[in-house]
Lab assay of single mutants.
Amino acid sequence: RGFLEKAAVKKMAKAIMADPNKADEVYKKWADKGYTLTQMSNFLKSKTAGKYDRVYNGYVIHLD
């Protein structure tokens, strides 16, 4: 289950990176699912340092 969630989160993160207008909708879905910042950090780990920082930081702001 965790692997599928991670894959889904990364897919949506890539969608945000391609079209930032989708961010609020995606952040709301993640918040509704109760994803914590720790979970998001783990889901968005990448071999490329900083690749998903913008998405993660946007989610931090959304939760605030």
Rank of each mutant, 00 (worst) to 15 (best):
K22S: 07
Y35I: 06
P20I: 08
T48E: 12
A8H: 13
W30L: 02
M40G: 00
T36C: 04
G34Q: 05
G2Q: 10
R54F: 14
A18T: 10
K22W: 05
V60N: 05
G58T: 02
K47W: 05
Y27E: 00
Y56H: 03
L44M: 02
T38N: 09
A31M: 09
V55E: 01
G58N: 04
L4S: 09
F3Y: 15
G2R: 11
W30Y: 01
M17V: 07
A23S: 08
K29C: 14
A8Y: 14
T36Y: 02
M12Q: 15
K33F: 11
A18I: 09
G58V: 03
K51L: 14
T48N: 11
Y52V: 02
S41M: 10
A23M: 06
M40Y: 01
N21A: 12
G34L: 04
L4R: 15
P20Y: 09
M12V: 04
A49M: 11
W30H: 00
Y35F: 07
N57F: 11
E25V: 09
R1V: 15
P20N: 06
N21P: 06
M17Q: 05
S41F: 13
D24A: 13
W30R: 00
V26H: 03
L37F: 04
I16C: 05
D53N: 07
P20Q: 07
K28C: 07
N42D: 14
L44D: 02
K45R: 11
P20R: 06
D64C: 15
V9M: 03
K33C: 14
G2V: 08
A49D: 14
G50I: 03
G58M: 04
V26G: 03
A15W: 06
K14V: 08
K33Y: 06
K51G: 05
A23H: 05
T36I: 02
S41T: 13
V26M: 08
K28H: 08
T38R: 13
V60E: 10
S46Q: 04
W30D: 00
V26F: 06
H62D: 01
A23E: 04
A31Y: 11
A31N: 05
V9G: 02
K47S: 10
T36D: 07
T48I: 13
D53W: 07
R54T: 13
S46Y: 11
N57P: 01
R1Y: 13
A18R: 13
L37D: 05
M12K: 04
S41N: 09
G58D: 06
A13Q: 00
A18L: 10
M40T: 02
Y52M: 03
Y59I: 02
P20G: 07
K33L: 12
Y35R: 01
Y35T: 01
Q39Y: 03
Y56T: 03
K28S: 09
F3R: 15
K6F: 11
D32T: 09
V55Q: 03
V55N: 00
M12L: 12
Q39K: 04
D24P: 14
Q39N: 04
K22Y: 06
G50N: 08
D19Y: 07
K6Y: 12
K45I: 10
K47V: 07
K11A: 09
W30E: 00
E5K: 06
Y59S: 00
Y56A: 01
G58Y: 02
A13W: 03
K29P: 00
K33A: 15
K6D: 05
K10R: 14
K29M: 10
K11N: 10
D53P: 01
M12T: 04
A31V: 07
M17C: 09
A49T: 10
A49W: 07
T38V: 12
L37C: 06
H62N: 01
R1N: 15
K6P: 05
G50Q: 05
K29G: 09
T38H: 12
N21L: 12
K11C: 15
K47Y: 07
K47R: 10
D19G: 03
K29N: 10
K28A: 09
N57G: 09
I61W: 10
Y56D: 00
A18H: 11
K28T: 08
K28L: 06
L44Y: 01
A23Y: 03
Y52L: 03
A7W: 15
A7L: 15
H62V: 04
V26S: 04
D19Q: 07
E5Y: 06
I16D: 00
L4W: 15
R1F: 15
H62P: 01
A18Q: 11
N57S: 10
L4H: 12
T36H: 03
K22E: 06
Y59D: 00
K22Q: 09
A8Q: 12
Y59A: 02
M40W: 05
D32W: 07
R1H: 15
M12S: 07
T36L: 03
